[in-house]
Each structure stands twice: as C-alpha cells, then as structure tokens.
C-alpha cells in the first residue's frame, strides 16, 4: 500500500499550496483508524497525511466536537461567565427572583436563530409568543409545552430530550411551585441530556436540580428602571454559585429593556 502511495505521489505532483479543509480544527480521534487508511497515510508526505481523514473518523470527530460545543445565549456577559454559553449535554440552572424568563427567552432565540430546534417547557404558562418573536425566537423551531405541574414538566422534558432537541428550557414558574420532582428524576434528566447532547436549562425560583447541574446561577432581584413615568427595563445580576469546572463567584450583568423602549 505504501509503495502504491509513493508511486502515486511520484506520478501526480501534489500542489504545495494549502489544502482546503472542510472541517477546521478537528479534535484528535482516540480510537485507531482503519489499517488501510493508516497505511495509506504513512505512505504520504507528513503534511498531506495529516489532512487525510476517513469517513468514520470524520463522523466520530464531528460527534466529539458537537458534544464539546456550547450553545451561546447571545448575551455576551453570560456567555463569558459560562465559557461560551450553555454546554451541550449538561444541566444549567438559574434560580432566584431576578428576570429568569428573559434569560431563557434569549437562549431560545439564540438557538432557534442558528437553526436548532428548541423546546420550552413552560410550567407557569407564562410565555408570550408575540414578545418571543420580537425577542428573536424563530417560532417555527420552538416547541411550546405547557404542563400544569412540575412532575408533568419533568416527564415532558425527558420525552423532548430523547427526541433530539438540542436546547430544552424548563421554566418552573413562580412560587409556590405546583408539585414536586423527586431527585431521581433530575438524575434521569441529566443522563438523558448527556446521552443526547442536549443543553438543559432549568429556571426556578429556588434551586431544584441539586447535584445534577453543571452550573447554578443565582438571579438577583432588582428594581425596575423608570424614565419619567415609563418602565424602560430591568438590570439582572447573574451570580455563579456553582460550577463543576471553575471557581464560583463570577457575576454577569445583563440589561433587559421593555419592547416599547427599544
């Protein structure tokens, strides 16, 4: 095989200019490639061989890259706090009395605008489609599920994650929450999210997901901003209370404006 490759190389003068790469910055593939591809690669110039990728390697590399990717929320300060956005395959929780729903809608808008299908499990039935569209959500790609109880919300989230939605946002609504989800259900949800590469964003008035979440953000309550007699917006401070891979304590400040003021 190597000899054949060398013969081929001698017969066809390969250009020395940069070879276009379909998928830039592919991560290394752990498992050994097929022997034939490996042998062919050895027979080639090192630089050219490094660019040679078999179909199975490519698919595995894409899967790996996809699992390591994040879904940006398009809120720069929050994305910076979360190292790029909501990590795929992980649970991120926002708890507190701040403007949680606005963060959820921003994340849904960012995901659907890139062509991803997303789901909003809206336990409090609080979503306004008109304002959602104004916020940038591509409503055609949004599945709106309106359970009445938290237990139904968890069951619905599990179904939706298993279908392959890349962003699933569960909004638990306002206190008092209707019903309770056992801890085991959050473990199941976290495992399902990991298995399907789904970013699961949970928004609740107080922490629900326990140890299953990758990160927990505290949404601090704040006063409204008024210009004269008109409400113009609300400032939100999101404090990182827990993160599995970095030190907590960071804070992201986001300013949300009412639709009429933008």
């Amino acid at each position: 095989m190597a000899a054949t490759a060398r013969r081929l190389e001698s017969q066809f003068r390969l250009p020395m200019t940069a070879i276009p790469v379909l998928v830039p910055a592919l991560p290394s593939v752990e498992s050994a490639p097929f022997e034939a591809v490996e042998a062919f690669r050895k027979g080639l110039d090192v630089r050219i061989g490094a660019q040679l990728t078999s179909g199975s390697e490519l698919l595995r590399a894409l899967d790996l890259r996809r699992s390591e990717q994040v879904l940006p929320t398009a809120l720069p300060s929050l994305d910076a706090l979360l190292d790029g956005g909501l990590p795929r395959g992980k649970v991120i929780e926002i708890a507190g009395r701040g403007a949680r729903l606005s963060v959820v809608i921003a994340a849904l808008a960012a995901a659907t605008s890139t062509g991803e299908a997303a789901a909003l499990i809206d336990t409090g039935d609080a979503f306004d489609p008109q304002l959602g569209e104004a916020a940038g959500i591509d409503l055609r790609r949004l599945l709106w599920v309106r359970p009445r109880k938290l237990r139904e919300a968890a069951a619905a989230a599990e179904l939706v994650i298993a279908t392959g939605f890349q962003l699933v946002a569960v909004d638990a609504g306002l206190p008092p929450l209707r019903g309770r989800v056992p801890d085991a259900a959050w473990v199941r949800l976290a495992r399902a999210a990991e298995a399907h590469g789904t970013a699961l964003l949970v928004s609740a008035p107080y922490p629900l997901t326990g140890t299953t979440s990758e990160a927990m953000l505290r949404a601090e309550p704040s006063r409204g901003q008024w210009r004269g007699p008109l409400l113009t917006g609300v400032d939100l401070a999101l404090r990182l209370e827990k993160h599995r891979r970095k030190r907590p304590g960071g804070c992201a400040r986001v300013q949300f404006r009412v639709a009429e003021a933008t």
Binding site: A74, S102, A106, S113, F127, D128, F256, V258
Partner: peptide
C-alpha cells in the same frame, strides 16, 4: 451559523 447578538428584551411573565 453564529447567532445574532441578543436583543435583550424584558419578558413579562404572563
């Protein structure tokens, strides 16, 4: 494709 920058709309909870 990359998402556009968020509009940062304040969402009322209905």
């Amino acid at each position: 494709r990359e998402p556009p920058r968020a509009r940062g709309l304040l969402m009322p909870r209905l």
